[in-house]
Structures are given as C-alpha cells and as structure tokens.
C-alpha cells in the first residue's frame, strides 16, 4: 500500500469517488472501528506530542493485534513507544520522537530503531505539515525552504531539490502524504462526523482531507442541530469521516484541550518503567494497561479516579479566567 512515494492522482480520485460521502450516521464501537485499519496500511495520527493523541484508537489497534502499520504524525510521544513496542507499527514518519522533553530520550524508540527492527523517517516539522497539506490539496508535492543544506535532507531522497522555474532559487519539494486511514480525536462531533476542535488544531484538518478514511474519536457526540447552529466551529466536514466513536477521555493519559491536561503521575510511572527496561517494561505495561482491561473505561479506572479528576480540573481551568 506504500509502494510509490506519492499516490497517483487518478488513484486518489478513484478511491475518493468510491467512498460513501452521504450525510449518514457513522457511530460505531471502538472495537468495530479497528476494522477500518488493515495490516500494512499507512495510518496518519492527529494531535501532537501529548495533545489530542488518538490514544483510545491506538489502544484498540494494539488489542486487535494489527501488523506492519506505517504511522505518521507531526510529533510523536509515548503513542510512538506503544506503536513500536507492541509490534503493530514498524515504520514511523515524524519530526520528533521521544516521550517528552521532561524525560530525555525514549529508550523504547532507541531500542527498536537502533536494533534495526523499526524505521524512523525524520522530516522537519513543517515538512510533515506540508506533506499532509499537499495530500489534502490533491497535488503531488509542496515547495518549502527548510531542510535544505542539512543531513535531514540527505536521508530523505524522496524529497527533491529543484531550481524554481520563476526565480531560479533552490527549493525543496516534499511529496504528498495521503494516509490510508487517519485517526483523529476531537472534543465533539455529531453522528455524521461534523467535528469541532477546540484550541490547537495541529495538522488535523489537512490530515483529514488527505486520508482515504477518517476514524474520529470524540469526547462526546452532539446533535446535528448543535453543529448547524455554529457551522463556523466545524473544522472537519462529515464527508471526510467514515467512523465516529464516542470515547470520553480518549486521549488519556495525554491531554485534550479544555477537557483534561496530561495525567502526569501515570506518564512518570510509565516512563520510569519502560526506560528502565524498554522490552520487559513495555511488555508489562501493555499487559497491565492495554491487553488487561476489558474496556477503555476499565483502563481509565487503572489510571485512577484521583488522577483523572485532577487532570480534568487542570484541563478545564483554561476557561476559568
């Protein structure tokens, strides 16, 4: 599914023409939504670092034992650890990959990338964004003025240096990225997939437009009337969306703008466990927190009511002033 660097335009159009773009209800369970992701697919992840990470969907994909996924995201945090460490993803396309600046290097990423089991393709942050942008625009590339002269570029022969036909200047063309599926978590959407995003949007709108399928997870499903009352708040239109899953706290232990901040005790405990032992520690984490719980709610119970409520209080405080 990822043979060519850029999907041929006619294929892109053909795939989109086959999608059901009608205004219809798309609400499914987390488990059912995993069927949109098949082994070997290219999966775009919304949010950035510890923010609006589609964690519940990643969690469900790990439980569904997917294989050989290629994942792309603006910046990767512990979601990347879980994807590589669980073995469902062996190729990450991003600009930065660790758990967070507070914790130094990710030993999980290091283990899988340095030992050669997994591939981490590094692009500049803007390049990742412009790759999704080109994908969203239906053009094969976008020109940018960064990455030139660096060794980041030397590792990416997929990007092409050109002399601008208008000015003669050196420019870099970064190839369109059209993931097979995008996973995006939002604060609210309706049953059709009209999605409102509060706060930072990251690359999610381009990602939604670029992908061939979009699975939305949402803190809550609201009525279509609510959407129609304020259409300016809709950031992703329903016809991009193929599945809607209501998952409160669907980014835990990461944050969701205005709803909850990161659950730092859980993050700290996670980091010390896996960086102490990137294989056994991660396996134990997956066993306890991913494979163990019967449901996402049970996973939240393991994080603990105290921490979830504290994160909620801090998250909502953005609206206190």
């Amino acid at each position: 599914m990822n043979e060519a660097v850029v999907k041929p335009y006619l294929q892109l159009r053909e795939e989109l023409s086959r999608r059901d773009r009608s205004l219809r209800e798309k609400v499914v369970t987390l488990e059912d939504a995993t069927s949109f992701v098949q082994d070997g697919m290219s999966v775009g992840l919304g949010g950035s670092t510890m923010s609006r990470t589609p964690m519940a969907m990643i969690w469900a994909l790990i439980r569904a034992r997917k294989k050989h996924l290629t994942c792309s995201r603006s910046i990767v945090s512990t979601d990347g650890d879980l994807l590589l460490g669980s073995g469902i993803c062996d190729h990450m396309i991003t600009s930065w990959f660790a758990q967070g600046i507070l914790w130094g290097l990710s030993k999980v990423m290091r283990h899988h990338v340095e030992k050669g089991g997994a591939r981490y393709d590094e692009w500049s942050h803007m390049a990742v964004g412009m790759r999704f942008r080109a994908g969203a625009m239906g053009v094969p590339f976008m020109p940018i003025r960064s990455m030139l002269g660096s060794d980041v570029l030397k590792q990416r022969p997929e990007a092409k240096e050109i002399d601008c036909p208008f000015t003669g200047e050196k420019l870099l063309l970064v190839p369109a990225l059209n993931p097979d599926v995008a996973l995006i978590h939002v604060q609210r959407c309706d049953a059709y997939g009209n999605a409102q995003i509060d706060g930072l949007q990251f690359m999610d709108i381009d990602l939604a437009m670029a992908a061939n399928r979009v699975i939305l997870t949402t803190e809550r499903i609201v009525s279509n009337d609510q959407i129609r009352r304020a259409p300016d708040l809709t950031k992703i239109p329903f016809f991009c969306v193929d599945a809607v899953v209501e998952v409160p706290y669907g980014c835990a232990p990461h944050e969701c703008y205005g709803a909850y901040e990161p659950m730092m005790q859980h993050m700290e405990a996670y980091v010390s466990q896996v960086n102490g032992d990137p294989v056994g520690g991660l396996e134990a984490y997956l066993g306890r927190y991913v494979y163990g719980p019967k449901s996402w709610t049970e996973f939240l119970e393991l994080i603990g009511m105290d921490e979830v409520l504290d994160a909620t209080r801090r998250g909502r405080s953005i609206y206190d002033d």
Binding site: S48, T49, M50, S51, S74, I75, S77, G100, I101, L102, H125, M126, G129, M130, F132, R133, I144, R145, S146, G199, L200, Q201, F202, M203, I205, D206, E255, Y257, G258, E261, P262, M264, G315, I318, D321
Partner: peptide, 27 residues
C-alpha cells in the same frame, strides 16, 4: 507547559493556528 504543543502554551495568547501555519510564518 511540558511541551510547546500543550494547552498551557495558549494561555492569554492572541491567536491559535495550525502547526504548519505557525511554521510558515518563519518562511
């Protein structure tokens, strides 16, 4: 903020926008 992508970064800001958009301001 624990990163420059967290909600704490937006406190009392004049504007929030996409990450590609803010990087394009450099360009």
């Amino acid at each position: 903020p624990p990163s420059t992508n967290d909600q704490r970064c937006t406190k009392r800001a004049n504007m929030v926008l996409g990450s590609a958009e803010v990087l394009l301001l450099l360009q």
